[in-house]
């Protein structure tokens, strides 16, 4: 059962540490004129309403999925070499102590997709992904990764298009002492070192104006789209090129300079990459919210 708070438009997904924030349908100018962000040209994008996770999926969230569906994630989808929050022993995946609140990392695009399918199953929704066939059904009503247009639209609410500036609000290479004090390396969680930048928990002390946590910094976030160049024509609900094995990742990470992080900055990542700077948050089309309780 899903509960909705109509005032904040926040949806709670049972058993998960995150809430879903609703973003209404909108038209906005996407991208940035400067080539350095790989986000030119600016172009008009129209989006239907969507829901976005207010924070990244945590290692604790992912642990419930792994325990519930042994075999859903294979060793090509998750990496268990240090540093990381999971180990794989004879009995299967094990969440390391003190790691539940940190973002789920070391997972490929398709491991994130498999998690979305698990949420869809739990909610009785149709799966968006066929993980074995590596295909996506955009007509399905289930959970999915955000498109990069959805991600950017949501991030612009909190941060506009300008680069991040406050070192204590974003976990970057330049993190201030208050942000750095929350890092995994401080407690050596996941065998991260305290001598290098490391992740902080998915929940920020203060969310942004849209209610989202750590959109800029902490971990790069897998988006739905394959990476491709922008065009100048207006588009509606874009979801990237039809071919290719590189996916958009957004938001920057603890390993990047503060000034490189913005709502418009884009990076491409091979979809099989399992790395300690890649995490994800979930999304869903709001038009699919047909069984809202209360």
């Amino acid at each position: 059962m899903r509960q909705i708070d109509k005032q904040s438009l926040s949806v709670t997904v049972p058993g998960c540490g995150f809430n879903l924030i609703e973003f209404g349908a909108r038209t906005f100018e996407m991208g940035f004129p400067e080539r350095a962000f790989r986000a030119a040209p600016v172009h008009e994008v129209t989006l239907d309403a969507f829901l976005l996770g207010d924070r990244c999926v945590s290692a604790g969230d992912f642990a419930r999925f792994l325990a519930d569906t042994p075999g859903a994630v294979d060793h090509m989808m998750i990496d268990c070499v240090d540093p990381g929050f999971f180990v794989h022993r004879a009995a299967g995946f094990v969440l390391r102590p003190g790691c539940a609140d940190f973002p789920m990392i070391q997972i490929s695009f398709w491991a994130a997709a498999a998690y979305c399918n698990w949420l869809s199953d739990a909610e009785g929704a149709r799966r968006v992904y066929d993980v074995a066939a590596r295909t996506v059904d955009y007509t399905a009503d289930g959970f999915r990764l955000p498109t990069e247009a959805e991600w950017e639209a949501a991030c612009r609410v909190g941060w506009g298009a300008a680069p991040a500036v406050d070192p204590d609000l974003h976990n970057s290479l330049d993190a201030g002492s208050r942000m750095a004090a929350m890092r995994a390396g401080v407690s050596l969680a996941g065998n991260f070192s305290s001598a290098e930048p490391t992740p902080v928990p998915v929940t920020a002390p203060v969310p942004d104006a849209a209610g989202l946590h750590h959109m800029l910094g902490n971990v790069r976030e897998w988006c739905q789209d394959r990476f491709g160049p922008y065009r100048s024509d207006p588009v509606s609900n874009p979801h990237g090129p039809a071919e290719g094995s590189f996916r958009v990742v957004r938001g920057g990470s603890y390993g990047e300079a503060l000034a490189t992080m913005s709502a418009v900055s884009r990076l491409a990542a091979f979809e099989g990459t399992r790395c300690e700077v890649y995490g994800f948050r979930v999304a869903r089309s709001a038009g699919n919210l047909v069984t809202v309780a209360g």
């Binding site: 070499v81 180990v87 022993r89 004879a90 065998n191 091979f270 990459t273 399992r274």
Partner: peptide, 30 residues
């Protein structure tokens, strides 16, 4: 751990001087 594996891609991950590590009770195909 030494030597790289089929699960990694970056050439530096395979370099002789590069070390990784894993939990002592790890049981994985790589």
């Amino acid at each position: 751990l030494k030597g790289g594996a089929f699960t990694v891609r970056n050439p530096s991950s395979f370099e002789n001087t590069t070390s990784f590590s894993a939990d002592e009770l790890t049981a994985v195909p790589y």
